[in-house]
Every structure is written in structure tokens, then in C-alpha cells.
């Protein structure tokens, strides 16, 4: 208990410092609320919206978009990343498209997605999935490639089947790298869902008081 407190204390302290700095900025800078609202204004608004039941359905929609998009994007990414790592041919054929696609800002595609797939769940899930795809695919490829060759040779010496090589050597060996990709991907998924939502109204700034329908 004391330990938990000791570990948690710095986190609290930094959070408090952040809020104080925010408040000071508002007070000293004298910004009007529509430019930079003070922390307590935002908090009141949040609590109010939650109490009125305005937020819950939207939170739920966004959450399901994020989760669905993340699940689809990361599954495809794992398979693609593995294929790229293990097949020269796949890499030669696919990597130009991957590079080109990665260079395209996915968020800029949001309005197009809305045009093609409507403003419902589908377009947002696709945006999420696309955004999640690249970091995880690249991390998987790098991770699988970096699995120690000497350990793979051990697997061969003890007659591991291809499936055993995958599950006992390649996946555990690539996992740290894959998790790195997933961390990046997961945060991006949320960004994707929010941008996806905003594109519904063809406006870059979604506003709390006039929520669009999910």
C-alpha cells in the first residue's frame, strides 16, 4: 500500500503541476474561454455532458470504432508484416505500395472515406484500421527479421515444424518489437476515430454542444 502510494505520488504531482500551469497560462495570458478554457471549465463541461447523458452514446460509438478498426488493422498488419519478413518476393512486390501508402496522410483520406463508405461506422473503422496497419506491419516485419538466426538454427536442430518455429521462436522473438508497433498503433487508432467522426460534418473541429449522430 505504502509502495503503491510512493509509486503513484510522482504521477499525481506531475498531473497537478500540469493543471496549475494550464490555469496560470489562462490567468496570466487572459485568454477568453473559446481560445483556451481554464481546466475547471472543461471539467465542468465534461461532467455536465456526462450527467445529461449526451456523451455516453458517443463514447460507446467511438470506442467500438476504435476497437473494431484496431482489431482488423492489426490482424492484417501481423499477417502482412510476417509475410514481408519471410518472403523476398512479397517484399519486392508490395513494398513500393506500402511506402507510397504510408507517405499518404491517411487522415487526409477521411473525407473521401466518408464519400465512399458513408458517414457511418464503416468509414471510421476503415480509417482506424488503415492508421493502425502501418506501424504494426512495419514493427512486425522488423521484429520477425530480427529474430536471432542462431535460435532458429536451434529450432531446426531439434526438428521444430514450421508451425512450431512460428509459435515457439518467431512470435516470442518478435514480440517486443510487435508490442512497440501496437503501442503506437493503439494511440493512432483513437486519433483515427476522432478525425473520422469530425469528417462527418466536413468540419475539422467537432464541438461538444452540437454532437452529430453516431
Amino acid at each position: 500500500m505504502r509502495r503503491a502510494l510512493r509509486d503513484f505520488l510522482p504521477v499525481l504531482a506531475v498531473a497537478a503541476a500540469f493543471l496549475v500551469a494550464w490555469k496560470l497560462l489562462v490567468v496570466i495570458g487572459g485568454y477568453p474561454a473559446f481560445v483556451l478554457p481554464a481546466p475547471e471549465v472543461v471539467a465542468t463541461r465534461l461532467v455536465g455532458a456526462w450527467r445529461d447523458g449526451v456523451m455516453q452514446p458517443h463514447v460507446l460509438t467511438t470506442l467500438s470504432e476504435v476497437l473494431l478498426g484496431f482489431a482488423i488493422g492489426s490482424s492484417l498488419a501481423l499477417v502482412t508484416g510476417y509475410t514481408l519478413a519471410r518472403s523476398r518476393l512479397a517484399e519486392r512486390l508490395l513494398s513500393p505500395y506500402l511506402v507510397a501508402a504510408q507517405a499518404t496522410p491517411i487522415l487526409a483520406l477521411a473525407p473521401l472515406m466518408a464519400l465512399w463508405f458513408g458517414t457511418g461506422l464503416v468509414s471510421k473503422v476503415i480509417i482506424c484500421a488503415l492508421i493502425v496497419f502501418f506501424p504494426i506491419a512495419v514493427a512486425t516485419m522488423v521484429g520477425v527479421r530480427s529474430v536471432d538466426r542462431q535460435l532458429l538454427e536451434v529450432g531446426r536442430a531439434f526438428r521444430a515444424t514450421p508451425l512450431q518455429v512460428l509459435t515457439r521462436l518467431e512470435i516470442p522473438g518478435a514480440l517486443p518489437s510487435i508490442f512497440g508497433g501496437i503501442r503506437v498503433g493503439a494511440t493512432l487508432a483513437v486519433v483515427g476515430a476522432i478525425i473520422g467522426s469530425s469528417s462527418r460534418r466536413w468540419s475539422p473541429s467537432p464541438r461538444l454542444e452540437s454532437p452529430s449522430t453516431g
Binding site: Q150, E153, V154, G155, T161, R168, G173, L175
Partner: peptide, 26 residues
């Protein structure tokens, strides 16, 4: 049975699980 020039144990497994590795594969 093969012993390599380096130990080549799987770093994510315990020593016991490493020794059991060939048995697991079999």
C-alpha cells in the same frame, strides 16, 4: 543431440523450459 558453440538458450524461457524445449517440440 547438438550443443552449439554458444549456449543459444531462448531468452524468454526459464532454464527448465529451455531444457524441456526439444521434448516439447517432440
Amino acid at each position: 543431440g547438438f550443443v552449439f558453440q554458444e549456449p543459444r538458450l531462448l531468452p524468454w524461457r526459464t532454464t527448465l523450459e529451455n531444457v524441456a524445449f526439444p521434448l516439447e517440440l517432440a
